[in-house]
Simulated scan of single mutants.
Amino acid sequence: MQKNKRKIFLVGGIIAAAAVIMSGCQTKTASEQTGAEDDRPHIMVGCDDYTPFSYMDVDGNMTGIDVELAREAFDRIGYQADFTFINWEDKKKLLKDGSIDCVWSSFTMDGRETEYKWAGPYMKSKQVVAVNIDSDIYTLNDLEGKTVAVQSTTKPEDLFRSHEAGLPELRKIISVKNRDVLFTFLSKGYVDAIAAHDTSIVQFSEDFDMEYRILEEPLLNVNLGVAFDLDDDRGIDEQLSQAIKEMRKDGTIEDIVSEYLPGADRYLEDADEK
């Protein structure tokens, strides 16, 4: 049922999602939905529209792996989590000015350890390159002289623009704000390849019945975490890290991930413990 809801929303909702982002839509809290009193302090979680991690279902409620994890983890440390879509490029500024308390949205920790205070990691992921089925690109070296699209301010953009890990020289890198545009560019042949989290590519392929081929060699194996501003001295990051450890040990994280992704254990087994 959850997958069907995602498909219905995604097929009809790319334009609507953009409108939601513009308006800074927030989900209703449990107390608002039931009418019950809830005096716990609220915490605002900023996230990208990024299936299967954080997205709106057909009823207008925020859902996804990260949303369910955040609700559970913050509940354990005495907070009520609210959610808002953000412009991904503005995440650091929004943390700094207090518009949001944290970013929880398939956010790569690796290489950013000194940019934020982190809670986690709670999952691992792979940054990968995907091409059309009939592409003659089979290895990262085959990207030499090609055009690749990435979402702006993401790890793949960092990797390609900094030429880390011995990546080949591209003809052009195209950075876009909306992740879904990546797939449009690739399907129409505007670019030769795209780079993103493997989970995101697999989910999009399933939701839209599209076929892409993910290169066997990943760009990077990464840990996903929850980012707080460096000057945030409330200690919530430390409390949250402890809650995440407990959720890993008692199987809660695996149970939630399993609702959205097959073979959940492969997204958890190598996530480094802090």
Rank of each mutant, 00 (worst) to 15 (best):
N141W: 01
S106F: 00
G111N: 09
K124E: 13
L143S: 03
F83C: 11
Y138M: 11
G98P: 01
L95T: 05
L69F: 03
V67W: 02
Y138W: 06
Y55V: 13
K146F: 12
Q80L: 11
G64N: 04
S135I: 08
Q80I: 10
P52S: 14
T108A: 14
N61V: 08
W104V: 02
P121R: 08
D110G: 10
I133L: 14
I77C: 05
E113D: 12
A73S: 06
D75P: 11
A81F: 00
V128L: 10
S105V: 02
M56L: 13
T139A: 07
Y50I: 08
L95S: 05
Q80H: 14
T114S: 12
Y79T: 10
T63V: 08
Y122H: 03
E115M: 07
D75E: 12
C102I: 05
T51M: 15
R112Y: 10
G120H: 00
V58L: 13
V150S: 03
K126M: 12
V150C: 07
Q127N: 15
I77G: 07
I77P: 02
V131N: 03
T108V: 15
D101C: 04
K93H: 13
W88D: 06
S125H: 05
F74V: 10
T63D: 10
E89W: 09
L140A: 04
T63F: 01
S125Y: 01
Y79G: 05
W88F: 07
A81M: 04
R112S: 09
R71Y: 03
Y116W: 04
Y79S: 02
T84C: 10
D48R: 14
Q80E: 15
A73N: 05
T114E: 11
V58F: 10
G120L: 02
C102F: 02
E115Q: 06
K146Y: 09
Y122T: 00
K91A: 15
E89F: 11
N61Q: 14
E113K: 12
W118K: 00
M56I: 14
M56N: 14
D101W: 01
A149T: 08
Y122F: 03
K146L: 11
V58C: 12
G64E: 02
L143F: 02
D101L: 06
Y116C: 10
V58D: 13
L69A: 01
A149M: 08
E113V: 12
F74K: 00
I137V: 12
C102K: 03
I137T: 04
D97R: 07
E113I: 12
L140R: 01
E72M: 05
D59N: 15
G60R: 14
Q127C: 13
E68N: 08
N141C: 11
V129H: 00
A130I: 03
D82Y: 09
V128S: 07
D57N: 15
S99A: 09
A81V: 01
S105H: 02
A81Q: 01
I77L: 08
A81E: 04
